[in-house]
Design a protein around this nucleic acid. Structure first.
Lengths: 177, 177
DNA sequence: CCGGTTGTTGAACGATCGTTCTTGACTGAC
DNA sequence: GTCAGTCAAGAACGATCGTTCAACAACCGG
């Protein structure tokens, strides 16, 4: 019963994720969200409760649609170079891990709920590398490889258009020797 | 001539850098800055022109006092493991590269002046690793190593208190084999 | 001691912030 | 056809945003 919803919730969250990834949590106003999403303010607050609630929903979606699939691709790789190549391939196409990066740097230190989601994404990426490395490798090495993938992506964010795949592949090449 | 300044400009910039590193550019208000710096609004605008001007001064100082010394320590290392150990040592003490990280993620994509400063810091770190690697190594490898250092630091920001040195040292160990 | 210059002070500006409220439109069940 | 329940729409809230201005205070060379 009741009046049916006039907007697609998933589309709205996706658009919100794009805005948050581009301008950060503090840098994105509710007015910006209302304009870009085409959803009325009242409806946003009805569904998500607050700007922060929408942000957490956007980050959740980013993890499910962008980050976790990447970790599955890494985990499914035959060996370490292939795993790094998988991570590199996700770079120069798509949102990669933009919102995850910005969330880790901007919001995670201040918001426990954001920190938990960020932790989930980062832990999944590290676990994927740990699986590829095998049981014999030290866990911190998987940590370092995940950090490399994120760091290269961060570099690409700062210097627009910079390709990051080459760096990751160079490390892969070096590790095979 | 004229009335002498009642505050230490360098101290003020340092305090501003701490605030910006903790809450980001958008997350730090001018009121926050006025309270923490103990400098009146009018004086801030007289000296720095705008909130953005103060932010750029803070980032400039962060590069000179925190980031570039780190790159010199890396560049002065005898071999690659020693260089990574130098970078790791800078982690669990001091501001490391907190403001640089947040600037790269939050402001650099939107502000060319910020992007130039971030680029300077990242390029210096990469150059330091390239120097340690020697002329024979591929430049992208130095890029990957710098990215690892930054990525580990980002991880430590998201999960408070997480030690990052172990991961970097594990990579150093792996690269020597 | 007196202009000229620079820094400090407190108040105030219009704009925008996140959030809430009221009124009306649309639905399925009775 | 009516009623309870959900959503849309627009206006408006107090608070805070970054920025500016006019008046006062402290220093300099003459």
């Amino acid at each position: 019963m009741g009046r049916p919803r006039a907007f697609d919730e998933d589309e709205a969250v996706e658009a919100a994720a794009r805005l948050f990834a581009a301008h950060g949590f503090e840098g994105t106003s509710v007015d910006d969200l209302v304009s870009a999403l085409g959803v009325h303010r009242g409806s946003l607050y009805k569904v998500f409760g607050s700007k922060r609630g929408l942000y957490l929903a956007a980050l959740r979606r980013h993890l499910d649609r962008d980050v976790l699939p990447l970790t599955r691709a890494v985990a499914g790789a035959a060996d370490l170079p292939a795993a790094l190549a998988q991570a590199a391939a996700a770079y120069d196409s798509g949102p990669a891990a933009g919102l995850l990066l910005l969330s880790a740097a901007e919001r995670a230190p201040l918001d426990p709920d954001t920190a938990a989601l960020v932790e989930e994404g980062l832990a999944a990426l590290e676990a994927a590398f740990a699986g590829v490395l095998g049981d014999g490798a030290a866990p911190p090495l998987a940590e370092a490889l995940a950090a490399t993938v994120l760091g290269v992506r961060l570099r690409g964010r700062a210097a627009e258009g910079r390709p990051g795949a080459a760096a990751v592949l160079a490390l892969a090449d070096r590790l095979t020797r």
